[in-house]
């Protein structure tokens, strides 16, 4: 583990990465040849500080994965900028780009896609090390891979020569994490990293990610639709809530969970199941005006939540609310909270 702590070259950056008014639109050809646009990410601004932990939450289809892919440079935003240490990543020179791709890593949502089934664990972990010239010889690669495996809680001799299908789901996810940290990243975007893991083992994997982040001074963005897991993972960080391609609220995690300000966050938290029969039966869920989630290819005007929001007024359907710091460190996009 020792040598990995050099990951941040002694310099601290207040802002590590910033997405600035970023949008991403998918274009699909429909059956009849027309173009259908899906506004998956729509004008999001978000800054990740060095060593910061952020949980990105929201319901299925709200654009979390798309935003994650924009952040790591897999998708080029339709508009807006992604700044890494102040530099627009889409205007980088080849060499800067290579370093960026090394320093910002994505853990994919789909674990079956993540590992090449025809390669052994050693091959999977050593290839990127050699490609990025982090190791120079096979010997060095072997030593480094063994260190990595130990860092993620696996016994090297047990897994080194195994293929992914010979490992349990939990072990596979540890390999994915080992690969993500092997290039000494400064930011890890982990997209639902435990959704395929047994419930009784999820916290172990999250603890592993948190511990490694602390040791290596890595920032992380944890994407999840599970509010309980978000609360756990980002307990020392912030939580960012998405709705239909927009960010609606961001703030210190426990503050937001205990006292949500945006109507959508309030509604969402009022329906998360709680493991307490008395509380579960007493508490009142906030009733929405409609259960139907509008389509991301034809989103409502104004505040995108106004079609369902119990507090909506006329203005909400006409103007789009901006993200405003309504209290210290708490940003909300809602006219009723301003």
């Amino acid at each position: 583990m020792e040598d990995m702590s050099h990951a941040i070259n002694g310099r601290t950056f207040n802002s590590l990465l910033k997405v600035e008014n970023v949008s991403f639109t998918y274009e699909e050809r429909t059956f009849f040849g027309a173009v259908r646009r899906v506004y998956a990410v729509d004008g999001i601004t978000l800054e990740i500080k060095s060593q910061e932990v952020i949980a990105l939450v929201g319901e299925s289809g709200c654009g979390k994965t798309t935003l994650g892919k924009v952040i790591v440079g897999l998708y080029k935003p339709t508009s807006g900028r992604v700044l890494y240490k102040g530099k627009d990543i889409w205007k980088m020179h080849k060499n800067e780009w290579r370093i960026f791709r090394q320093k910002v890593q994505l853990i994919h949502q789909d674990p079956y896609q993540a590992l090449n089934p025809s390669k052994t664990v050693f091959q999977i972990l050593s290839t990127p090390l050699r490609y990025h010239r982090i190791v120079k010889s096979r010997e060095e690669a072997r030593k480094r891979v063994e260190d990595l495996l130990r860092a993620v809680g696996l016994k090297p001799e047990m897994v080194l020569n195994k293929y992914p299908h010979q490992l349990s789901g939990g072990m596979r996810q540890r390999i994915v994490i080992a690969r993500a940290i092997s290039l000494r990243p400064e930011l890890i975007v982990a997209d639902e990293p435990v959704s395929m893991i047994d419930v009784s083992l999820r916290i172990d994997i999250l603890n592993l990610l948190l511990d490694l982040g602390n040791k290596l001074n890595t920032s992380s963005i944890f994407i999840t639709h599970d509010m309980g897991l978000a609360r756990y993972y980002a307990r020392d960080g912030r939580i960012a809530v998405m709705y239909l391609g927009n960010l609606v609220e961001i703030g210190p995690t426990e503050d937001v969970i205990q006292r949500p300000l945006h109507p959508y966050t309030k509604t969402l938290l009022s329906v998360v199941p709680v493991p307490d029969p008395k509380l579960a039966r007493e508490r009142k869920a906030i009733q929405l005006r409609s259960l139907d989630v509008p389509s991301a290819s034809n989103p409502p005007h104004g505040c995108k939540f106004h079609t369902r929001c119990p507090f909506a007024e006329k203005r909400c359907s006409q103007e789009k609310p901006k993200m405003i710091e309504v209290e210290k460190n708490r940003y909300v996009a809602c006219f009723m909270v301003e």
Binding site: L201, I203, V272, D276
Partner: peptide, 22 residues
């Protein structure tokens, strides 16, 4: 199992996985 599931109401600091595998 109850201890392994972080909730919105419970104490987050005592949450932990069950060791071993299914």
């Amino acid at each position: 199992l109850i201890k392994a599931i972080p909730s919105l109401t419970g104490d987050i600091s005592t949450v932990k996985s069950i060791p071993g595998e299914v």
